[in-house]
Structures are given as structure tokens and as C-alpha cells.
Amino acid sequence: MTDNPNPLPSIIPEKDWKKIQRMLSKRSLWMIHFCTGCGAMEMPPTMTSRYDMERFGIIPMATPRQADLLLVTGYVAVKTLKRIVRVYEQMQDPKYVISFGSCPINGGLYWDSYNTIKRLDKYIPVDLYIAGCMPRPEAIMDAFLKLMKDIDEGRADGWLRYRKYYDKYRANQMRVFKRWDE
């Protein structure tokens, strides 16, 4: 067996490769915004020329399969949650979730509603919460920068938690769904 003329650069250890990977992936976030509730209203000014989030490298994407950042913009009804889980499971790893406004944190305005879930991270892992009703575009961009920092430092690990505790998340989801397949 002859020697490989192009050996892998073994000078860089595995740990540092991951670091480089994270450094690069934080700069190419493709976002899909799941427009539930009123938070979607804050997205057009954030995306377009007034606040222009594209300068941070975040671009909206039309389909979940090519996106890696999921934005849940408002209250989540049980019916919506089923679709959110579907969208989330279609996305490829690594994937990140930002939940938006007070409603996915503790129910917000809908704290006693019979049909909205109160806390989103009981059902899917959430990397970052933005509080406020509604958060301003400045807060959204602040969250994006914070998420980039978290990705860089390896703290945005929701997708790993979803893999590891998949049974628990699925058990929680099935407590509010009667059946999964429609």
C-alpha cells in the first residue's frame, strides 16, 4: 500500500476542526420564520432596508429543509405546535430555534387559554428566548448576535438535546396531541 499523497491535515486536531466549523456556520444562518401570532409583523422591517439583517448574514429561506434557524413568532396553539414540530424535524442538523415574544415563554396574554401551550421548550428545545410584547427589531438583531456568539462558543446545543432526549420530548408532545398522524 502506497502512501497517500494528500494526507488529511492531521496538524489540526478534531476539537479545533469543530471550532472552525462553528465559526463558519454562525456566519451562514438561513432562517425560516414560522409566522404564528403577531410577532411576524416585526419581521418585514427587520429583513428589509430599514434594519437590514442581511448584513449579519441572516437571510430568510422559504423551505425548512434548507434552513437552519427556526423562528417561532408568537403564541403557539396546539394545532400550530403539531406543524412546528413537523417543520422542526424536517430541518437538517445543526438547527437552532429562537422563540419570540412573551407568549412562548409562559403563555403571555394567553395564560388561561384552553388551546395554547404555555411554554415552548417543553415540546421542542429552544436556544434563545426574546422577551417582550412585541420585541422591537433591535431586540431581534440583538438576539441574532447573541445566538451567533452562542453557536461560536458551542452553547447553542438544542439540536443535540433533541436527539438525546427525543423520547422525552415526544412524550411531552403526545400529552397534548391526541394522535400524531392526520
Partner: peptide, 25 residues
Amino acid sequence: DFDTVKYVKEKYESVPLVEGRGDKQ
């Protein structure tokens, strides 16, 4: 006669949190 608050407590607040937040990657 539908008690919303009771229903919310039974259905949503009893769902346990999934641990593991802050685990090292």
C-alpha cells in the same frame, strides 16, 4: 361551565420540563 384555568393547569402546566439545558457539547 367549562373551567378554563383548571383545564390549563391539568393539561399544560403538568407537562414536565426536559432536563439537559446547559449540557456541554
